[in-house]
Design a protein around this nucleic acid. Sequence first.
DNA 1: ACAAAAGTGTTATGTGTACACCCATGG
DNA 2: CCATGGGTGTACACATAACACTTTTGT
Lengths: 224, 224
Amino acid sequence: MTLSLPPQATQVGLAVDVAAFAIHEGKLHALLIERATLPHLQTWALPGGFVHVGEELHEAALRELRDETSIELEPRHLEQFYTFGAIGRDPRGRIVSVAHLAVLPYGTVHVMGGATTLHADWFPAHAPPPLAFDHAVILGRAIKRLQLRLEYANLALEFLAETFTLPELQGVYEAILDRALDKRNFRKRLLAQGILTPSGERRSGVGRPAQLYKRAKGTRTGLL
Amino acid sequence: MTLSLPPQATQVGLAVDVAAFAIHEGKLHALLIERATLPHLQTWALPGGFVHVGEELHEAALRELRDETSIELEPRHLEQFYTFGAIGRDPRGRIVSVAHLAVLPYGTVHVMGGATTLHADWFPAHAPPPLAFDHAVILGRAIKRLQLRLEYANLALEFLAETFTLPELQGVYEAILDRALDKRNFRKRLLAQGILTPSGERRSGVGRPAQLYKRAKGTRTGLL
DNA sequence: ACAAAAGTGTTATGTGTACACCCATGG
DNA sequence: CCATGGGTGTACACATAACACTTTTGT
């Protein structure tokens, strides 16, 4: 490093926080951890922490997600969505947090308490418990962003396994938008987009089996 | 400050950059400065710099805009839109920049060289000169964000004086979207939104004078 | 009178939304 | 045969896009 920073440059703590979502029992859930350290000891919060030296922002987000929740997962989507830097937001000093939005398929997640956290668990995203710092605001904005993304990215598919039924996909939309959708209009719209191809097989259970679909070739949204 | 940061916390330089836009001669222009310091001496760049201690992010953006361009202005709109933190983006070390998008009315702007910059000037936003750091990427994303915002915020009004004609407003849309719009459909759509009220007066010049409008009461978008 | 820019309506097309019944399977 | 959930089509309202001529003013 041959050039130095100007004297008035602020050195601040750089953190990432992750609002990670999955669908469970037809409802949108967010992954929260119970803090094992001050400040806000024993308060629920978004997974997150300080960025390490030489670590990219999205790498830090993935690491915090893994370390704090002992999750075995590959996030299907990870995206920075806003940076929170208000002066009083952290009592330890000036800490700027780059907030990320992550999407996980619920099935692949096994949550257990990690070293730096007391617990980790899924909570209904639309009705979370009291959260540390400004994390309630961050979570709220993450949900809004998720709803917006749903419209023109095919982000809903990231919540599901490789093959899925149309009712399952509709359930994802309804969980995220927090309202009911018309079955026929939903199918019409989704099939018209041409991003789904029938996978031939059918899933069985109670009632009539549903046609299975998978994403059409060349329609990945881009993970990071 | 009673609590200390954990040892692995990275201290990084926190900067803001501002992509400031105005309409001039029917084209979208961006405000650039020519750097008076290393690195990238004598290269054009977005106005920006380090955040001071105890300074909010948006305050830093406003200060840099004023100091580096000696502009006399009140930005009509200022909005954070993305944070750039890739490791190699600045040769001085790990510097994270919170990028902002600003809208100025062109008429109120007087650009002259400031102390920390060699020059400051407006450039066509869709065809800028070579830029320092990753500022070309930042500018490109700022334009995209501006185009998106145009749709559902009434951001176009921020480019104009308090009263304006419909052809002027259409010119703003065309400059930002970089394509022509149909006059009749444009008028129909804008007037249907009910955010414009005729201000009675008419502006004179060559050709038939145009009706003047101003924004309807209670339709401010929110500056910050 | 002419040049220059403002203003004005209709039609076709596409998109979103509301709405009710039959189908296939398991128990 | 019944309970459960999957699958299907049509009609209306609304928004969008294409398109050409007349009006008002200054010179």
